[in-house]
């Protein structure tokens, strides 16, 4: 096993463990903190894949922005800091959902193992960010513009919902 593999297994374990802890935690605040840990784990995976820019974005937007936003929302919601006693996190459909999820997991597992994954050994040469920026301005110009409109709509929509 190479160092990279060890690192991958360790980081994956931390990420998945944090995600599991987030879902099972009884206090929303604690769950949010676990979520930040999972986000950081994903960023570490990106670094392992030598996608530095993506890792930085993951840290800035998810571990930074989104986590802070969620903590703010929790802070501003009354009576949410206590663990939710008496409230079950399972409803009567959990067995059905578990079965579907297990089925889906088995399918994806089989897919991942049996697939002869195309490996592109060509390295990305040059500055990542430069290539990304050039992509946005050339081949991916339309998606880039549509995304800008999408963000504007999200902004307007959030204000419409939040305003009394």
């Amino acid at each position: 096993m190479s160092i990279t593999q060890v690192a991958f297994i360790l980081i994956s374990a931390i990420t998945l463990g944090s995600a599991l802890a987030m879902v099972t935690s009884r206090t929303v605040f604690v769950a949010a903190l676990w979520m930040v840990a999972a986000f950081v784990g994903v960023a570490a995976l990106y670094i392992l894949l030598e996608a530095g820019f993506l890792a930085a974005i993951q840290l800035l937007i998810y571990a930074g922005g989104i986590a802070v936003l969620i903590l703010f929302a929790i802070m501003l919601t009354p009576r949410v800091m206590q663990p939710m006693e008496g409230l079950s996190r399972f409803n009567d459909q959990w067995m059905f959902v578990a079965a579907v999820s297990a089925f889906l997991f088995a399918g994806l597992w089989a897919l991942a193992i049996r697939t002869d994954w195309p490996v592109n050994l060509q390295r990305v040469t040059g500055d990542n960010i430069f290539l990304l920026g050039r992509g946005f301005m050339t081949q991916y110009l339309l998606p880039f513009e549509v995304t800008s409109i999408l963000l504007l709509v999200a902004l307007v929509g959030a204000i419409v919902i939040a305003r009394d």
Binding site: Y140, P143, V146, T147, L150, V153, A154, G157, V160
Partner: peptide, 19 residues
Amino acid sequence: GDLIVVFLGIELLSLPLYV
């Protein structure tokens, strides 16, 4: 003409409808 644009179009349709 591209699945990325398809996805963005669907989101641009859905977000206003949620609101």
